[in-house]
Design a protein around this nucleic acid. Structure first.
Lengths: 140, 140
DNA sequence: TATTTCGAAACCAACTTGGTTACAGATAGG
DNA sequence: CCTATCTGTAACCAAGTTGGTTTCGAAATA
């Protein structure tokens, strides 16, 4: 997870929640994120596959959130953009003739999974509504 | 954290713990990890700066663990190789004229920090000794 | 002194990343 | 049915990262 797509995805979804039922174009969204509309469409395409948003072409079209903001957790967004595992293992398989090399991957996979699960538990506790409320509570 | 250095570092430290007081050369270690000795030296150089290992040149030289295996947690190893933050924020700063763009980074930084702290708490619970015991408990 | 080992720099191919251009297709609305 | 406005997608790019490799100097041992 060494890319910014997760952050951008949360940003965009919060923006859609902020906009309510109104559809936002990728160009408008790109203006808030400060990037290119195609980048936004790429990320939103993944969120659409996950069932979080829908898109509509043509005039007046754009993107809308499909769920209530309180029903979308940061964990769900992570799963939707999930690039892959938190901790990659070896680039090339370790030497199976070595006792450590033989077993280290399975051992680490277990510990890494436990650590990641703890992280995900925290992300599951935060919803788009939480973010939305904090945004609205901001001083102008 | 999208590289394999953390995994390799834990592998190497476990190997050093397995070897006890005996010094292991980067070439021998590379044989277990199945990579190039220079790659091993690069990673061990960082662990030496963190005070976890020491190196010695010349014949009979190599690398040794400086601490008792039970006194080295996976969290400490992570900190020693730490490439950087878990969740990178935006590539370019969001639009400050947008209410969401203005506040999203600070909000996410907080939530990401909480999530990472939970992950680190789990990594802190596992020591090199735990790994060593599991390796030794392996069937031959 | 000869051998072994680390230290460090330089270089490389492969891959990822975010950004950009370009254009086809769909849709709403007059 | 035309036109302006959207999305969808492919293709391309520069920049950065990654793991690996070669090379050579320095230090240490015996």
């Amino acid at each position: 997870m060494s890319n910014t797509r997760y952050t951008v995805a949360i940003h965009v979804l919060t923006l859609l929640a902020y906009a309510g039922p109104e559809a936002l174009t990728s160009e408008y969204i790109a203006g808030s994120v400060n990037t290119n509309p195609v980048v936004i469409r790429r990320i939103l395409a993944g969120l659409r596959e996950a069932g979080l948003v829908r898109s509509q072409g043509g005039p007046g079209g754009g993107w809308q959130l499909l769920r209530a903001p309180e029903a979308v957790s940061l964990l769900e967004v992570l799963r939707a953009v999930d690039t892959e595992a938190s901790f990659p293992l070896h680039a090339t398989p370790p030497n199976p003739a070595c006792p450590v090399g033989r077993s280290i991957q399975a051992l680490l996979a277990g510990h890494f999974h436990t650590a990641q699960a703890a992280m995900e538990r925290e992300l599951a506790r935060v919803s788009l509504r939480d973010l939305l409320e904090d945004v609205k509570a901001q001083p102008a």
